[in-house]
Simulated scan of single mutants.
Amino acid sequence: MRRLWRALGFPEPGDRQAFGDADVAAFGQVKAAVESDLLTEDTVLRLARAMGVTMARLADWEVATLVDEMEHDVQVGRADSRLSVALTLAQQVAPRFEEVLVQVWRRHLTAAAARMEAIGAKDTELRTTTMTVGFADLSRFTSLSNQLDDAALGSLVERFEERGADVITVGGGRVIKTLGDAVLYVTADPVVATRIALDLVGSVGARDDVPAIRVGLATGSVVSRLGDVFGPPVNLAARLSHVARAHRVLVDEETARAIGPEFATRALPPRPLRGFGNVSPITVTQRRAFRSR
Rank of each mutant, 00 (worst) to 15 (best):
A197L: 11
G172F: 10
A182M: 06
E262I: 13
D166F: 12
H247D: 15
A246Q: 15
L148F: 01
G227I: 14
I259H: 03
L138W: 09
S241A: 15
V223T: 15
R195D: 11
P232I: 08
G227E: 07
R140M: 08
R159T: 09
G231C: 08
R159Q: 11
L240C: 05
A258I: 06
P261W: 08
L226H: 14
V157A: 11
V234R: 07
T130S: 07
D137C: 12
L138Y: 07
R239K: 15
R174K: 14
A188W: 06
V157T: 11
G171A: 07
F263R: 07
V201S: 03
A212F: 02
D181P: 04
V215Y: 02
G171C: 09
E162A: 12
G154M: 07
R195Y: 00
A244I: 14
I196D: 02
T130K: 09
V204T: 12
D150R: 13
A136N: 05
T219R: 08
A264D: 05
D209L: 11
L138H: 06
V223H: 02
V204H: 09
A238M: 10
A188K: 08
L138Q: 07
S139E: 06
P190I: 12
R239N: 09
V210D: 03
F263C: 08
V215T: 06
L226T: 13
S224F: 06
G231W: 11
V191G: 01
D208V: 14
T255N: 02
I213E: 02
I168Q: 03
E162M: 09
T219A: 06
D166H: 13
R214T: 03
A244E: 01
S203W: 04
M131Y: 00
A218P: 04
R207I: 08
L217F: 02
A152V: 07
D199R: 15
T169Q: 14
I196W: 04
A246G: 15
V222M: 05
R214V: 01
G172K: 14
I176D: 02
N146S: 15
G154T: 09
L250D: 01
G205F: 04
V222G: 01
Q147W: 00
L200V: 07
L250C: 06
D137H: 12
V186C: 04
R174N: 10
V223M: 12
A218F: 04
A193M: 07
N235H: 15
G154C: 03
V249L: 13
R174E: 13
G220E: 00
D137P: 07
A256G: 04
V201I: 13
